[in-house]
Design a protein around this nucleic acid. Structure first.
Lengths: 339, 339
DNA sequence: TTTGGCACTCGCCCTGTTCGAGTGCCAGCG
DNA sequence: CGCTGGCACTCGAACAGGGCGAGTGCCAAA
């Protein structure tokens, strides 16, 4: 059991270490914080905290630094979410307003988050399966070649070319287009494959159209698989701020960031609602074992259509970062709702 | 005037330095290369080369390293373009075949280039203005809200939402769509704004449609401006291979890479045809003053629709890098031509 | 013009030393 | 029983000195 004061000591250690990036000793602690006790007492508390695994010393005769477990306790029980200052809020609005399309929104959000938190920002595009269809367009590129264009209510536009087994007339195309739209517009994307499944049967001229329709169905599916999750990252230059030993860690982190799969898994593991903070080794990926990931879902309505967050050193300003991430997510949600 | 042997000495220095990443001395040179002369002679040659500014020594009693000017001479007169090995060629084909759309092609190309050269890869999307229009689609999202979708022969799909001053009927929309397509399909993108300019006049019902058409024209233009040039980068993890002093240089390079404007300017400055190599301070951007950029145009036909290249340390394997860049560019061109 | 010889330079690396922040322990005090 | 001041101790950081050796420049001879 940790007394109130010991928790206070831990909080002080975290705050000082985040600020100075240097191990913090008992004397410095009592000087900078009004703990009301002497360094000797703090030393005893530190010994306990170390025994419990909340802090550690890099080497004997050095100060203490928080462990992952220590940061965890700090985030869970000792720190709140720091609300942004009004200038910061204004910056968010200025920056995000005036985006012309979804790519633009996502791009601006990444830059904004990176600037605000001075860390690496990751923003996921709205998930296809959680969006609803706004329009489906079929174009004939060549006699036996179609292009399918999908537009969602979140502004995503996806396209795919498909080769047909036989040529396809313009009138049949218009027919298919109309039927397709009447069926799927306004429906959730996840339901589309099923809705389209029996569409071939409704056609009268058997072979050609039947096959083409199945092609379409598989196309829809494959489109979901391959393009379902996209994301954008930015602010990688902030990796150089990771601390004095950044040359060692930057490599694996950059590699992890280049693997979209890794990042998507990372965001996927986060809670569906509310903010998620994963600290150091809590991240499954090895390359990210000395980073923390703060992420949160965002969406136009009540429920999240995608996630965004930042990747930074475990030694980060958690309250401030969480505040920034949450504020940006909320505003992006609004922007999406408006468009 | 530099004798043949002195050039040979410079070539040897460049090759050794690129291989070992360490300053190379006269003795080591004569041992590793069959120059047919003694170290003393080489020393004399080195003194001349240094006087001319082709090589320099980091400090007294150290070997020599090439200067930017030295690399320049090496690239221009001493080195060819090393053709790829057959396994490498095969790798390119395997990697690039099976791309499903343009995004996929560009994404795979970036990863491929980064892997092949072990450097940072930059790939530009086919320029809009140099592509031809394959199809224009107009969709009505809401009574007074249209979406314009553009498809080019290079596979680019761009979209933009536009708010109309007044509602627009479905039949008028179809009319406009048809007229638009009959005018611009098959035309070069750069000509589109002009082709569309007098389109409003051809409409009979004056106000509504006239204004809408002008909206469309400006929309086309703004679309070109904002989206004309896009690019993708990858392999940033290779920045850690920049040498022993990479912690110092990585920062500005990462910052430069994040600024798409900078990169676009960089590629824009490259020659229209043939390969361009910019070495160290030849790059206008300050952050890239200790990197070299190897770039080349690629395209489906004879002329380039965009550029791609790599960014690496000035101390790079120029012949090999140039070979890889050229080979990839050629194959990407083929892929685009097929689709 | 090339070559071997030779003295010289200067950064790298290893070692020894000092310095001081920070610790753990202990005895005394409230 | 918990807190406090005192004290000896530890150990890394920073600095200084010295040997080593790669590499140089110069010179006289071939």
């Amino acid at each position: 059991m940790l007394s109130e004061r010991r928790l206070e000591v831990l909080r002080a250690i975290v705050q000082d270490y985040v600020g100075t990036e240097e191990p913090v000793g008992s004397k410095a602690l009592t000087e900078r914080h009004k703990l009301g006790v002497s360094p000797a007492t703090v030393r005893n508390d530190m010994a306990v905290l170390e025994e419990e695994g909340f802090i550690a010393q890099p080497h004997t005769s050095a100060g203490r630094i928080p462990t992952d477990k220590g940061y965890r306790l700090f985030v869970d029980r000792l720190a709140g979410v720091k609300p942004l200052s009004t200038p910061e809020r204004r910056a968010i609005h200025n920056f995000l307003d005036g985006a012309v399309d979804l790519d633009d929104v996502v791009g601006r959000t990444v830059r904004l988050l990176a600037q605000l938190t001075r860390q690496v920002a990751v923003v996921q595009y709205p998930s296809l399966t959680r969006s609803t269809v706004r329009h489906v367009e079929l174009l004939s590129l060549a006699p036996a070649r179609l292009m399918l264009v999908l537009i969602t209510d979140t502004g995503r536009v996806e396209q795919r070319v498909v080769d047909c087994p036989a040529p396809f007339g313009e009138t049949s195309l218009a027919d298919l287009r109309a039927r397709l739209n009447s069926r799927v517009v306004g429906r959730r994307f996840a339901d589309v494959p099923q809705l389209v499944q029996d569409l071939p049967e409704s056609f009268e001229e058997i072979e050609d159209r039947a096959t083409v329709s199945t092609v379409l169905a598989t196309l829809l599916e494959s489109l979901v698989e391959e393009h379902e999750e996209r994301l954008m990252i930015g602010g990688t230059a902030n990796l150089t701020r990771f601390g004095p030993d950044f040359p060692l860690m930057i490599r694996p982190v950059l590699e992890a960031l280049e693997e979209q799969v890794v990042l998507l898994k990372l965001l996927g593991e986060a809670k569906e609602s509310g903010m998620t903070v994963r600290i150091g080794h809590e991240n499954a990926h090895e390359g990210l074992s000395s980073t923390s990931v703060v992420s949160v879902g965002y969406g136009s309505g009540g429920e999240a259509v995608a996630k965004l967050g930042v990747v930074g050193p475990t030694r980060m300003d958690y309250p401030g970062t969480m505040g920034a991430v949450r504020a940006v997510a909320r505003y992006v949600g609004q922007i999406l709702a408006e468009s």
